[in-house]
């Protein structure tokens, strides 16, 4: 029983923390963010397993985590409000050429992050060539260039 409780608690805690610390954590991962993720993974592993390294414990935890994942995906499918709560919705960083400073500030990004995506996706050279920049649910930035840019 402990294994299941540990699995559920850690999974839900991670969902809340990752959601609360923002999408930047996942997409614009710098080497520091990568180190952070590695440490979190190691810490989580210890919290999940405790001092029980048996195969039984591992199997129960793996099954619990997969079941949670499957359950959550069904929950999101059935309830759009749960889906919005867990995944969020896309956010405009640039809309019709207008930079949304508030959105950039709140998502802890700046125009250089947007330009990284603009260069990578469309080879754009300047900010004014961007029509829309959208921070997607999956934490990536989608760039839609101005016609002729």
């Amino acid at each position: 029983m402990d294994s299941v409780i540990r699995g559920v608690a850690i999974y839900l805690l991670l969902v809340v923390i990752i959601r609360a610390t923002g999408r930047r954590t996942m997409a614009q991962a710098t080497p520091f963010d990568f180190v952070l993720l590695l440490i979190v993974a190691e810490t989580t592993q210890q919290a999940l397993l405790g001092d029980d390294f048996s195969i039984t414990n591992a199997v129960i935890l793996i099954v619990t985590l997969f079941m949670l994942d499957v359950g959550l995906s069904y929950l999101k499918r059935w309830s759009p409000s749960v889906s919005r709560l867990i995944d969020g919705r896309p956010t405009f960083l640039i809309h019709d050429g207008q930079i949304d400073e508030r959105a950039l500030k709140k998502t802890r990004m700046d125009t250089s992050d947007v330009m990284v995506a603009a260069r990578a996706q469309h080879g754009l050279e300047r900010l004014d060539q961007i029509k829309h920049a959208v921070l997607e649910n999956d934490a990536g930035i989608t760039i839609i260039p101005r016609p002729g840019a």
Binding site: R89, P90, F92, I144
Partner: peptide, 14 residues
């Protein structure tokens, strides 16, 4: 739909 782009944004939720 937000003007020229079809996207499901929800600024209030955000």
């Amino acid at each position: 739909s937000t003007s020229s782009i079809d996207i499901d944004v929800d600024r209030r939720l955000q």
